[in-house]
Nucleic acid binder design. Structure first.
Length: 421
RNA sequence: GGAGAGGUGGCAGAGUGGUCGAAUGUGCCUGACUCGAAAUCAGGUGUGCCGUAAGGUACCGGGGGUUCGAAUCCCUCCCUCUCCGCCA
C-alpha cells in the first residue's frame, strides 16, 4: 500500500500518477472513507476516555456502597454507547483499509507512459540475433528432445505442465541452478533455502492475495499456498520486523521450484518449455534504504544480465511502460532471451522496485536517522527462470550435427561439451 | 495423533477483576565520577492509530465473549515445550 499522506496532502498528484497505470480506483470516495474513519475513531476514543475516567473514580469507592451501585447503573449506558461507537469506528476503519488496498503503487517518473505491452521500450540489447543460428529449430522439434524431457509421463503422474527432466537434461538443470546461485553469491547475495509453501498472511503481504488467489495452488486443509515465486517466502522473512539502518542493504538469493496455475493464459505459447505449471528459478531479493532503491534496481538488473552474458545468450532489456507495469511495482525491467528456433523473445527475468509498497503491506521497517521506524524499499528479480533459459540454449546452440553446445560457464557442474540425447 | 505445561516489553521474569503500558532484574542510550575503562550513581529507553499540538486511545500469542471495569474469568484458534505413538 502507498503512504496515506499522498491521499491527504496531494490528491491531484496521486490521481495523475495513478492515471498513468491501467488500474482504476475511486480516490474521491476513498478520501470520504478516510474522513469518516478518522471522525468515528476520534469520537469512539473520546467516549472511551470518559468511561475510563469514571472507572478510575469507581475504583476508589467502597464496593457495594450506595454510591458505587449508583455509579454502576449510570455507567451501564455509557458502556453500551462505547461499544456501539467502537463498532462503528472499526467498521469504518475496515472499509477504508479494504478500499485503500486497491490503490496501486505509483509509477516512478522515469517510467514511460504507455497503454500496454506494445509501448514497452527496448532500452538495450546484447548479442547477435539475426542470421547467426543456421541450424536452430524450436527446442520441442529437436529429434531427441522427448527422450530428455518427458511430458507425457508428467501428464500421467501429475498433469500438463509438469514434465520430467531425464538424465543429462536433469543434470543440466542442476548445473544452471548451481551457476545462478554461485554468481549471486559472488554479487553479494546471501543464499537461503526457503519454504515452498506459505500461509495466507505471507501471500497477502507480497500482494498475491487477495487479487491473484486463482493463480496459486492451494491446500485448503492447511490454508497453505504453493509459492508462485521465491519472492513470497524470501520477502516475508522480515515481515513485522524493524531492521537497523546499518544492516541495509540486505541482499538474499534463493533457488526454489515455482508453481503457477496459469489460469486464463493456458493454450497460448505453451509448447515445450515456454510455459509450465512447475518450474525452477533463482530469485534475488533486496531490502534497501529508500534513498537509493532506484540505483539498487539498476545493479539488480545488471546482476541478472551478467548471467545471460556468461551463458552467451542474446537478450534485450525492456523498460516496462506505465500501462503494463504491475500493481505493486514502481519500476520494472524485463529481460527477454532470444530463442532462435522459435524466432521469438522469451521473458526470463523481471526486475522490479516496489519502493515502500510491499514493505507497508508486509510491515518491514528500518530505523531512520531520526530513530523513527519507516518502511524499507524492497526489490526483486529473477536470476533466472530455468526452463526458458534451457529452451534458448537448446535452440541457439544447436549445431549441424544436431548436438547442443553446452555453455562453458556450466562446465564446473556439467562436464560435457555437447548434449545430444 | 494422544497426555500434560505454557505463550507478558530487546531478553529474563512478577502480576488471578479496578489506581497496570504493566513491578523487578538485565541489556541499550545520555550524563556524573575517571587520564581512560571497569565499578558506582542519576536520568532516559516499545509500537500502531486519532490529534497542528497539548494530549488521547489501542496493544500482555490471534479472534470472540462475560463485566460498570479484563494481562487477570469464559469460548475458540494458532504456536512453543515435555512425555508417548508414528515417520523422512
Amino acid at each position: 500500500m502507498i503512504d496515506v499522506n499522498h491521499l491527504r496532502q496531494d490528491l491531484e498528484g496521486l490521481k495523475t500518477a495513478i492515471a498513468r497505470k491501467k488500474f482504476e480506483c475511486d480516490l474521491d470516495s476513498l478520501v470520504e472513507l478516510d474522513k469518516r474513519r478518522r471522525e468515528t475513531i476520534s469520537e469512539a476514543e473520546q467516549t472511551r476516555a470518559g468511561q475510563k475516567a469514571a472507572n478510575t473514580e469507581m475504583s476508589q469507592l467502597p464496593k457495594g456502597s450506595p454510591e458505587f451501585l449508583a455509579k454502576v447503573a449510570e455507567m451501564k449506558e455509557l458502556a453500551g454507547k462505547v461499544k456501539d461507537l467502537e463498532a462503528v469506528a472499526k467498521d469504518a476503519d475496515e472499509q477504508f483499509q479494504e478500499a485503500f488496498l486497491s490503490v496501486p503503487n505509483l509509477p516512478h517518473e522515469s517510467v514511460p507512459d504507455g497503454k500496454g505491452e506494445e509501448d514497452n521500450q527496448t532500452i538495450s540489447a546484447w548479442g547477435e540475433v539475426e542470421g547467426d543460428f543456421p541450424h536452430a529449430v524450436p527446442h520441442y522439434d529437436i529429434p531427441w528432445f522427448e527422450k530428455l524431457i518427458d511430458f507425457p509421463r508428467g501428464v500421467k503422474v501429475a498433469g500438463a505442465g509438469f514434465p520430467f527432466y531425464i538424465g543429462e537434461m536433469s543434470q543440466l538443470v542442476r548445473a544452471l541452478i548451481n551457476f545462478f546461485l554461485e554468481e549471486a553469491d559472488k554479487n553479494g547475495y546471501q543464499e537461503v533455502h526457503s519454504p515452498i509453501v506459505v500461509n495466507a498472511a505471507s501471500a497477502m503481504a507480497t500482494g498475491q492475495l487477495p487479487d491473484k488467489e486463482g493463480q496459486m495452488y492451494v491446500d485448503q486443509n492447511e490454508g497453505m499456498y504453493l509459492i508462485p515465486t521465491a519472492e513470497v517466502p524470501v520477502t516475508n522473512f522480515f515481515r513485522d520486523e524493524i531492521l537497523n539502518s546499518d544492516e541495509l542493504p540486505v541482499k538474499r538469493c534463493a533457488y526454489t521450484p515455482c508453481f503457477r496455475r496459469e489460469a486464463g493464459s493456458w493454450g497460448k505459447d505453451v509448447r515445450g518449455l515456454n510455459r509450465l505449471h512447475q518450474f525452477d528459478k533463482v530469485e534475488l531479493v533486496k531490502w534497501v534504504h529508500p534513498d537509493n532503491s532506484f540505483d539498487e534496481l539498476e545493479s539488480l538488473r545488471k546482476d541478472a544480465e551478467g548471467l545471460l552474458q556468461k551463458l552467451g545468450l542474446p537478450y534485450r532489456v525492456l523498460l516496462i511502460c506505465s500501462g503494463d507495469i504491475g500493481f505493486p511495482h514502481s519500476k520494472q525491467y524485463d529481460l527477454d532471451v532470444w530463442a532462435a528456433g522459435q524466432k521469438r523473445w522469451l521473458e526470463v527475468s523481471s526486475c522490479s522496485n516496489f519502493t515502500d509498497f510491499q514493505a507497508r503491506r508486509a510491515n518491514i521497517r528500518f530505523r531512520g536517522e531520526d530513530g523513527k521506524p519507516q518502511p524499507v524499499h524492497t526489490l526483486n528479480g529473477s536470476a533466472l527462470a530455468i526452463p526458458r533459459v534451457l529452451a534458448a540454449i537448446l535452440e541457439n546452440n544447436l549445431d549441424s550435427e544436431g548436438r547442443v553446445k553446452v555453455p562453458d560457464c556450466l562446465r564446473t557442474w556439467f562436464d560435457k561439451d555437447f548434449l545430444s540425447g
